[in-house]
């Protein structure tokens, strides 16, 4: 009882210190942005460039606000994310399947490896005109291209991951009576998971980069890439900046919220990689 009474003020003091520490960290992280913002604002106000090409922060944020409230920006973002996820879903399913097949069967490896090795090094966007030519404009080629491009890192990493599963794990599972199916499900898949996740992470990052570009080229009716590209025609630099900001935020969220979480709950917890 006495112990608890003594402990309470010291823990609350420590919590107070932690809050102070947090504020300092946030301040330190915000400071560089403040510097950049001030420089930006000075250049804009001095009208070194035309105001249309180099809007003030006020103009950018009022556009951001206006477009958000009107529902235009969320709609564009929604379409983009939807395309991203559908393309990525295709890539994940096909990519993991091919990668695992390649690692488990020699014949599959012989068939797929040369093709994948030839197609993968070509920058994904270089395929865009071909896809547009073959499949027309709009959603279909955009999603297809995103899936196609993000498939390669997933294939490569799943393949390497399954091959890197330690022989002793396989042997000890077999000694403990695991059949092929269970061996795959309980040993090979979790063993290869760090690699597969890395592949998905790389794949999603590629999908994101390609998607923004392909939205500009494929003349889709909605989407952040299209918004930016369209805004150029009208010299709406403020709208462009708002779009770029949103693209950055979504990219950051994908990284922080999706993949770091998944990694933390699986492979980091198993100690297979260090956080």
């Amino acid at each position: 009882m006495q112990d608890a009474a003594v402990a309470t003020p010291s823990t609350s003091a420590r919590a107070g210190m932690r809050i102070g520490e947090n504020i300092r960290v946030i301040g330190r992280n915000l400071f560089p942005f403040l510097v950049v913002a001030v420089i930006w604002e000075i250049i804009a106000r001095l009208e070194v460039f035309s105001r249309r090409l180099f809007p003030t922060l006020e103009e950018i944020f009022s556009s951001l606000y206006r477009l958000t409230v009107a529902g235009i920006l969320p709609m564009h973002a929604f379409e983009t994310v939807l395309r991203l996820l559908s393309g990525f879903a295709i890539a994940a399913v096909i990519g993991v399947t091919i990668g695992v097949l390649m690692a488990r069967s020699r014949r599959a490896e012989d068939i797929f490896l040369p093709l994948v090795s030839i197609l993968a090094p070509i920058p994904g966007l270089a395929y865009a005109p071909l896809f547009l030519l073959w499949f027309g404009l709009g959603n279909f080629p955009a999603v297809l291209l995103v899936g196609f491009v993000s498939m390669f890192p997933i294939i490569f990493n799943s393949w390497t991951g399954v091959k890197a599963v330690k022989e002793i794990w396989v042997r000890s599972a077999q000694a403990m009576g695991a059949d092929d199916k269970r061996l795959f499900r309980y040993v090979i898949l979790p063993g290869a998971l760090p690699y597969i996740l890395t592949g998905m992470r790389l794949g999603l990052a590629q999908a994101w980069r390609v998607l923004v570009a392909v939205e500009m080229l494929a003349a889709v009716p909605w989407g952040l890439g299209w918004l930016i590209f369209g805004a150029r025609e009208m010299l709406n630099t403020d709208v462009m900046m708002a779009g770029i900001l949103l693209i950055g935020v979504i990219g950051l969220l994908l990284e922080k919220l999706v993949f770091e979480k998944i990694e933390r709950y699986t492979v980091v917890r198993w100690g297979m990689i260090t956080a």
Binding site: L53, F54, F229, L235, M240, G243, G248, L252
Partner: peptide
């Protein structure tokens, strides 16, 4: 570090229209 981390997730292609203007 904060600046680099914030700019990293913006695909270079998103900046093409802006840089074309500039």
């Amino acid at each position: 570090l904060p600046l680099v981390s914030a700019l990293m997730p913006i695909p270079s292609f998103a900046l093409v229209p802006l840089f074309m203007l500039w």
